[in-house]
Design a protein around this nucleic acid. Structure first.
Lengths: 269, 269
DNA sequence: AAGTGGTCTAGACCACTAT
DNA sequence: TAGTGGTCTAGACCACTTT
C-alpha cells in the first residue's frame, strides 16, 4: 500500500499542518481515492510521506474519527466509513438566528403567576404536589408574526435563591444567547411532531390541527436538580432542522434545503 | 489563581491520563467549582498540578472545547461556557434502533417503476425533465405495524452504472446499517413537522390530519452529483429526537424522556 | 515583559492483530 | 515477529493579550 497522495504540506501556509492533512485526506475520501471500507495508509506511512510527526498524524486521525468519516481498529488499521443515516445529527438552526436578532424578534409575556405544581409537573421537577411553581406563558414574535408559544414551570422555593437567575435565564434572551453566566448547568430537550390545539392555533395565528413542533425542555442546576420544565410550540413553517451525513465538503449545505416546502402536487397518482 | 483540584491522576489506572483529566475538569464545572464565565487554570498550571505534559493538557482542552463546555481565547485563557439552547444537537435515535433489529423490523416494497422525472424531481436531481428516474415506494414496519412510509426517486442513467448500488443502498438496510461499502459519498437531510394526507394516513394506519415527521433526504455520489431524492413520512409516535445541552454527566439521559407523551390535560385553564 | 493558548517535534512505550 | 493504532513526554517556537 504505497498510494501516493499528490499534494504535500505547505509549511509556509497560515493553515496549520494538521488542518492541511485533514483536508487532504478528507478530499481523498470525497473523490473516491479511498472508498468506504478501504484502509487508509498507516500512521507511520502518513508520517513519512507528509514529513510530519506521529503526534500530528494522530491528531489528524482523531479529527477524522470524530467527524465520523473513519473507524480505527487497534492492531489492524484505519478504515473509511460509509454513509449511515442513523448518524445524522440535527442542529437547531433557525432557532438561534430567529431570536438572536433582537430588532426583528420580540418576546411577549402573556402570563406569569405562582401556582401549586400540578401532579405531572411535580413529577418532572421532583417536587411534592404542594410545592409552588411559577407558571409562565410567553409568545415569541418575529417581524410581528408569532412563531412560537412557550409555557414553562419554574420551581419557586424560598430556600433556593436561585429562582431569580432561572427567571432571567428562561427569559429566552438568556437561554439562547446563553453566554451570560447563569446558575444553570445543563438541559435536556426532545422534539415531537404535534398538531395545534385550539388555544395554540389562536395564539399562533394558525388553524387548529395545523402541524407544529413541540420542543420539551428540562433544565438542571449544579446539584443536578431540575429547576424548570416547559415546552415550546413552534410553527412548523418557522423551524428547520437540517443535517448532513457522510463526507460532505463544507460548502452550500443549505442550497439543498431551499425549495423544500412540502410538495402539494400529486405524489405520482 | 492557585485553585487546587483535590483529585490527581492515577497512573496505574486503565483509564488514560487525558480521559481522567477530562473527567476531573468536567466534574469540577458540573459541581460549580468553575461556574459559567469563570476562567480555568492555565495550561501550564494544569501541567504542573497534574504532572502531565503540555500535549496531554492540550488534548484535554480540545476535548472540552468540542464538547462545547469551554471556550478558549488565545492570549487570554480558557473559560467555562453556559448553557446555550441554540447548540442543542438532536440525534436520530430510534430510527437506527428501529431498523437495526431485523427480527422486529421489516421493509415492504409497495412499488418500483421507471418514470420520467417530474419537474420538481428533475430540479432536485439536476436532471432535464426528459430524463428517467426510478420511483420507489416502501413501507417500514415494526412488529407488524407500519411506522414509516418512504418514497424516493433514483437517477436512472445507462451511462452511470452506479444505479444498482444506489438501489441497494436506498434499500434501507444499507442506508441505516451503513457500514457496507457503497458508492454514496454523502447525504443531506432535513426534518419538518407535517400532517398526514389521506393516502399516507391509510398506509400508516393513522388518521388523516394526524401529526408526523417528514424527513427529506438527498444523496450524492463521489462526484458530488445528486443520485437520489426522497422523503420519509414517519409516525410522530415512533420517532424521538433528543438532545442535551450544557454539562450533562453521562447517565440516564432518557430518564427525562420517558413519560413525555403530550399532555392532554388542561394547560392551566 | 510576562502570561496565555496553538502548533509541532522526535522519539518512547504499550496493546492489539495478523502471519 | 512485524505492523498497527493509542498514549505520553519534555521540550521548542509562535501569535496573541495584558500589564
Amino acid at each position: 500500500m504505497t498510494i501516493l497522495l499528490s499534494q504535500e504540506i505547505d509549511r509556509t501556509s497560515y493553515e496549520p499542518a494538521y488542518a492541511q492533512l485533514v483536508n487532504i485526506l478528507q478530499a481523498s475520501m470525497a473523490t473516491g481515492v479511498f472508498k468506504p471500507g478501504a484502509q487508509l495508509p498507516s500512521e507511520a506511512q502518513l508520517c513519512e510521506h507528509y514529513k510530519v510527526s506521529p503526534m500530528t498524524v494522530r491528531r489528524v486521525i482523531n479529527i477524522l474519527l470524530d467527524r465520523g468519516l473513519v473507524t480505527t481498529a487497534q492492531g489492524r488499521g484505519t478504515f473509511v466509513k460509509g454513509v449511515d443515516i442513523g448518524e445524522a445529527v440535527f442542529h437547531l438552526s433557525g432557532l438561534k438566528e430567529q431570536i438572536e436578532s433582537t430588532d426583528r424578534a420580540q418576546v411577549q409575556l402573556l402570563e406569569a403567576r405562582i401556582v401549586e405544581a400540578p401532579e405531572r409537573v411535580a413529577r418532572k421537577l421532583e417536587l411534592s404536589p404542594v410545592d409552588w411553581t411559577i407558571f409562565v406563558r410567553r409568545l415569541l414574535l418575529q417581524d410581528g408574526t408569532p412563531v412560537s408559544y412557550h409555557r414553562a414551570y419554574l420551581i419557586y422555593d424560598p430556600r433556593r435563591p436561585i429562582v431569580e437567575g432561572e427567571l432571567e435565564v428562561t427569559s429566552l434572551e438568556g437561554l439562547i444567547h446563553g453566554n451570560g453566566q447563569t446558575d444553570l448547568q445543563s438541559g435536556c430537550l426532545s422534539i415531537e411532531a404535534v398538531t395545534l390545539k385550539e388555544e395554540e392555533a389562536a395564539i399562533l395565528s394558525m388553524g387548529q390541527g395545523d402541524p407544529a413542533f413541540l420542543i420539551d425542555h428540562t433544565f438542571y442546576d449544579f446539584q443536578d436538580r431540575p429547576v424548570s420544565w416547559g415546552w415550546f410550540i413552534w410553527r412548523a413553517d418557522r423551524l428547520k432542522l437540517s443535517a448532513t451525513i457522510g463526507n460532505r465538503p463544507p460548502q452550500d449545505q443549505q442550497s439543498a434545503m431551499k425549495d423544500s416546502r412540502r410538495w402539494t402536487g400529486e405524489d405520482h397518482e
